[in-house]
Amino acid sequence: MSGRYLLRRTGLILYTLLVVSVLVFGITQVLPADAATMLLGENATPEQLAAIRERLGLNDPIWTQYLRWLGGVVTGDFGTSMRTGLPVLPQIAEALSRSLLLAALSIGLMLVLALPLGILAAVRRGRPVDLLVSLASYVGISLPEFVTATLAILVFADWLGWLPPTGYVPLTEDPARSLLHLILPVATISLILVAHVSRMVRSELVDALHTDYVRAARLKGLPERVVLRRHALRNALLPTITIVALDVGYVLGGIIVVEEIFAIPGIGRTLIVAVQNRDLPMIQAGALVMAATYCIANFLADLAYAALDRRIQYG
């Protein structure tokens, strides 16, 4: 992978984030919310509102406000939260770290389960295990997150009492309790991911096992596990990487619902609270950070492509 490609891809990410910043800033400007009123309250006098608008530069043209905000973002200053009165960046960073932990555990569990299930279903195509995996995949894809989360709380928290229903404990405070609180949210997110990715792995591996190069490898007398690992699986995983990268977008969307249901103070729940309170700086920062996360995930997918298939050259 050449430095020219890395430079070009970095430029594309920055351009994408620039477009997102314009859209996010523009949308938040037309929301039915007034920053001065949010800061001073409904009982503020017109003179007080006029003074705070002047101090915050809200009377300036929108493009001037955008450039001022963008300049702050570039230097790491996302503004001050209208709800808490604290700088936005530390709050977003803390919330994002919790969401990234939840997402990393969910994607890790997905990879541990989806790959073996997809491989097993492909190798045992048409047999009961294949039908069982396919049926479980259809069920997993059909259930939305809020249904899965509600059922998980009812069964494992209320009826059986095995796990805490909601809440969050920092990992640094009590690792055991923290992981215990994360089991149900991680399982909720992973269920759809496992169903989606296992189906993709099965489909691509079935096609790969019927290609000419796999037949040639078998005719050479290579053991079936070698044929599967070195020839079929390596090529079958390439499209799967794309699906996993796209699923990052699902995780970012689904995590909002899951964090709200399980009361996890991550980036998703932070955005919901910000929208409810018309906290414009927090909304702008949260949306921009989530867009950056998605862009980085797609970039890492390209790197994984090149690592799995040496024929792929980015120049």
Rank of each mutant, 00 (worst) to 15 (best):
I283M: 13
V257R: 12
L222Y: 10
S137H: 01
G79T: 05
V112F: 04
D34R: 07
A136S: 13
I119H: 03
E173H: 10
A51G: 06
S142M: 07
G167M: 09
V289G: 01
Y168I: 12
N59I: 13
P164T: 09
A33L: 02
G254E: 02
E260K: 08
T293H: 07
N43S: 13
L238I: 15
D279F: 03
F78Y: 10
L18A: 14
E94D: 07
G126T: 04
L135H: 03
V214L: 14
D130K: 04
A33I: 10
I255T: 15
R177D: 13
L58R: 12
L49C: 07
K220C: 11
S137D: 09
L303T: 04
L303D: 08
I52L: 11
R311I: 04
A291T: 05
G11S: 12
F262K: 14
I267D: 05
L179K: 02
S21C: 01
P144D: 02
V22A: 11
W159K: 08
P61L: 04
A208G: 12
V169Y: 01
L182S: 10
E145I: 00
A236R: 00
N235K: 01
Y5N: 09
L252G: 00
L7C: 11
I189Y: 01
E42H: 10
T293W: 14
T64G: 04
A35H: 03
A195R: 14
L228I: 00
I267C: 08
P46C: 13
I264M: 02
V133D: 08
L163Y: 00
L280F: 14
P116V: 04
Y66E: 12
E204R: 06
G57V: 11
P185F: 08
A36M: 03
G11Q: 12
Q29L: 06
T211P: 06
L180E: 07
A149H: 02
A121N: 13
T240M: 06
L111V: 15
A187V: 12
V133P: 06
G108V: 15
D34A: 08
L131D: 05
V275Q: 08
A195N: 10
P265Y: 12
T80N: 09
G108M: 09
S97Q: 13
T270I: 11
L67E: 04
T37N: 11
M282P: 08
L12N: 08
W69I: 03
D130W: 07
E224H: 06
L246I: 05
F146A: 01
A232N: 06
Y5A: 15
Y305Q: 15
S190R: 10
A216E: 04
T270W: 01
T80P: 12
V275C: 03
G57N: 11
D207V: 00
A114L: 01
V22D: 09
A232K: 00
T150C: 10
Q284W: 15
L120E: 00
L105E: 12
L111D: 05
G253C: 07
V257L: 05
T188K: 05
V139I: 13
D212L: 11
